[in-house]
Amino acid sequence: MTSALSEGEAIVIEHFSKSYRMGFFLRRVPAVRDVSLTVRRGEIYGFLGPNGAGKTTTLKALVGLIRPDRGRLTVLGGTPDDPDVRRRIGFMPENPYFYDYLTVWEFLDFHASLYGIPKAERRRRIEEYLERVKMTEHAKKRIRQLSRGMLQRIGLAQALIGDPEVLILDEPMSGLDPVGRWEMRELLRSLRGQKTIFFSSHILHDAEVLCDRVGIIFQGRIIAEGTVGELIGSSIEGYEVTLEGVPETASLGPAQILSRQDRQVYLWTQPADLSAVMDVAHTNGWRVVAVTPQKRSLEDLFMTLVQAR
């Protein structure tokens, strides 16, 4: 194993590029261009981007399913081509596909046996992870009988069964209903500190809630990287204020009227002007219904970055 990592780094991607041959003339189409990033041990890292941005290609290269045209990918000090490195990685592809003629138990037993885990220990782990993903009661069901959400949970269980140090998950929340997404998020949150998690997503809210750091990829290139705080800022950008009893001709000072509905007026104001708006409301006897602080979301940042290109 080559050791390109410094202490505390779990994944290092250096100048990774990959293209595919497509179409009748097998023209080379770049999927990922010169991507470099680092994921520290114990970190939850969100790899974000729209469909076709190059997320899945990067993840597949990290687990050895595809080989880079250029650049180097290092996981836990070694190359993903090395089975000993893959022993320490758990991977769940997007929409995982299973041998649907197996039962849930047989499926997990098969994957545990690929790690060379002895039978008694396999049994213990299967019970533990079925419990963890809340699938114990479905252990004897054939996989073809499971719902989408259940499949996703079994997909996560097989990724965890070898007790890996690094989890690489491709769109773990995609296709799930709100309850399923919440459950998956909580499952990943429960692994915080125990595993390094590198996951791709185009659902920015999940990343915002879960991730220590995120990288945004667009058209095969990283266009932003950092902690969520660094990227979107922690400060409040403004306030949305709802007032009642405001006459149509009334002046609202520096506030900007967003809309009127029935007797209520919705305003937007800068943080510095909030007290002035409150004073005007108080002086005129208008009722303050709500004051909601407005923060920039990852989605706002994402749209700004993408539209700028």
Binding site: G64, L65, D84, P96, Y97, Y99, H111, L114, G155, G162
Partner: peptide, 14 residues
């Protein structure tokens, strides 16, 4: 075709 090998080849098997 069914992508079942994605889960297998990413395990410690050559």
């Amino acid at each position: 075709d069914k992508r079942t090998l994605y889960l297998i080849l990413t395990k410690p098997i050559t």
